[in-house]
């Protein structure tokens, strides 16, 4: 019992989230296989697992975020942990989970890539072009990591909004999460971010590292907001 309290929180929360993510990836992978081997007639090139899973991984992280306040926070305080330790531990677990859900698609994609080179698959798998566009797999990984973390934080924000302020104000937090998604799209997918049209610059022209920096600032802002919202929260009984 010598490890700091927040680390005990991080370990337990990560272990739960990790199990959920294993379920999620198992199901997603089965769907991917169905797509590759059965639902492949409309196109002669099928996207690799990295591209295939991106959208779903974001949604998974949003859902995990939404579960956070209800599944973990009250339990921590009842087990005699401070809100601060609960927050720091949960935040660390979320960062760990974001790393994990970034790595899994990368690794599966790499295996697919190697397989495609070694044996002849019945379909053409495109496991590389996504990385060409974004400037290499490291950049793609950083982009996915920042995206999933942002989605997690948006979910966490919604859940603390409902937990703390009830369901009417909770809708306000959903609205706030749309602002977060808008900003995130504005940074990463400028062509689809219609809601942010009024903002002045065109990120397509911007440097990748500048986008990553902007995205990191958004993540830090959200982490700070979560600390403010959980700092003195009343625990439901």
């Amino acid at each position: 019992m010598t490890s700091p309290r927040y680390r005990r929180v991080a370990a337990a929360v990560f272990s739960d989230m990790f199990k959920w993510s294993l379920w999620f990836f198992s199901i997603l992978f089965v769907i991917h296989l169905v797509r590759v081997f059965w639902l492949n007639s409309d196109t002669n090139e099928i996207e690799g697992f990295f591209v295939f899973s991106q959208y779903s991984v974001n949604i998974f992280m949003l859902v995990v975020g939404i579960m956070t306040a209800y599944a973990f926070m009250g339990r921590h305080i009842q087990q005699g942990l401070s809100r601060r330790d609960s927050y720091v531990g949960t935040a660390l677990a979320a960062i760990g989970l974001s790393l994990f859900v970034t790595l899994v698609p990368l690794v599966i994609n790499a295996i697919q890539h190697l397989l495609a080179e070694m044996v002849t698959l019945p379909v053409n798998l495109d496991t590389a072009s996504a990385f060409e566009e974004t400037g290499g797999w490291i950049a793609a990984a950083i982009a996915l990591f920042l995206n999933v973390l942002t989605f997690y934080l948006a979910g966490w924000l919604i859940s603390i909004g409902y937990y703390r302020f009830g369901w009417i104000a909770g809708f306000g937090f959903i609205a706030l999460s749309f602002v977060v998604f808008g900003l995130n799209d504005y940074l990463w997918k400028p062509t689809t971010a219609d809601a942010m049209e009024w903002l002045p610059y065109d990120p397509l022209e911007a440097n990748f590292w500048l986008i990553a920096l902007g995205s990191s600032i958004l993540v830090l802002l959200l982490f700070s907001l979560m600390r403010l919202l959980t700092k003195r929260v009343t625990i439901k009984m």
């Binding site: 309290r5 305080i77 009842q78 005699g80 942990l81 401070s82 809100r83 601060r84 330790d85 700092k231 003195r232 009984m237």
Partner: peptide, 16 residues
């Protein structure tokens, strides 16, 4: 309140 050493000393069992 928010004192980690003291909160750790209290166990609150209620009709959850």
């Amino acid at each position: 309140f928010e004192n980690p050493e003291k909160m750790e000393q209290v166990a609150f069992v209620y009709d959850k």
